[in-house]
Design a protein around this nucleic acid. Structure first.
Lengths: 156, 156
DNA sequence: AAAATAATGGTCAGTATTAGTCAGAACAAG
DNA sequence: CTTGTTCTGACTAATACTGACCATTATTTT
């Protein structure tokens, strides 16, 4: 077993080094690329493979003058099991009443507050998502609900 | 790491600084431009991108001798007129970035908590609402956002 | 008054400066 | 050799900045 780390590994370690105890860092893609003498897009590769939400990182960026890439460490919450099992029952399509039941479950399990639940209900309501096609609407609802559930897995 | 802000960011911060707790300020475009050593039209750029109604600001101006640009801070939900004009600018279609700006403003005004804002953001995100058609997506986003706003409006 | 001039701000298209995407080449492990 | 990972670069997208030209209002001159 060789100790030969890839450059991507070194970049990962470097970023985590300067992250240190900070909640977040802002870097310039070209600077990091320059520092390691690689093409800029490799920084995207490193971020995409090593700073995912599953690993507890949120990444945001801005282009143009004064642009940056911000890497933020987030706390993964411990309701993951509840959320995972709920996401599984959704599939790629869900009716309004079933979505509402899931929100109710979240509230019962104290994963969300009442107000958060109310906002979720509005976003999932037939009235809001109706696009004239019941199938499309149910798929859309599933996407919205899954996005919401995934967001509940962590906090910034 | 380093804070590499663009000049537009600095101008934005400066204007918000002198705005302070005041309801409004009146500036001279050429003065600000001079202060930061940029062309006057960049002030228009900063205002157009950072002091929109979505961001919670109303801007009026007058040309000619004694001309000025007035920047006024407004509350989105408290003021019926402001909310109506906001909903009007949303219309039946809105881009992700404009929707995000509105949610940010609601958070800044303490109308919603950070977590509520985060949930709203994912419900409005391109990733969530993308249905393969940009127009349909933007219309959906408008409906979701207006539903959420109305929910917040009639709650308090 | 009317006309000219001065003193403002507005618009828009073009350039500059960042980051993102994606397909494919290069490389490493089995 | 096969498969999965790393690395590259051409192309794309988003944001910032600039300057020439336009529009509006106030002031001065005739």
């Amino acid at each position: 077993m060789m100790e030969n780390k890839s450059i991507s590994d070194l970049i990962e370690a470097y970023l985590k080094e300067i992250l240190g105890d900070s909640a977040q860092i802002e870097i310039r893609r070209s600077e990091i690329a320059n520092h390691f003498d690689v093409v800029p897009s490799q920084i995207n590769y490193v971020i995409k493979t090593r700073f995912t939400i599953q690993n507890g990182y949120l990444v945001k960026s801005k282009r143009g003058g004064g642009g940056y890439i911000r890497i933020e460490r987030v706390n993964l919450l411990d309701n993951i099991d509840v959320l995972n099992s709920l996401i599984q029952t959704i599939g790629d399509s869900i009716r309004e009443r079933d979505a509402f039941a899931i929100v109710q479950t979240l509230y019962d399990e104290k994963v969300i507050t009442q107000r958060e639940g109310d906002l979720m209900l509005v976003a999932l309501a037939k009235q809001t998502l109706d696009v004239g096609n019941t199938d499309v609407e149910a798929r859309l609802r599933a996407r919205v609900l899954i996005s919401l559930l995934n967001r509940l897995r962590y906090e910034s």
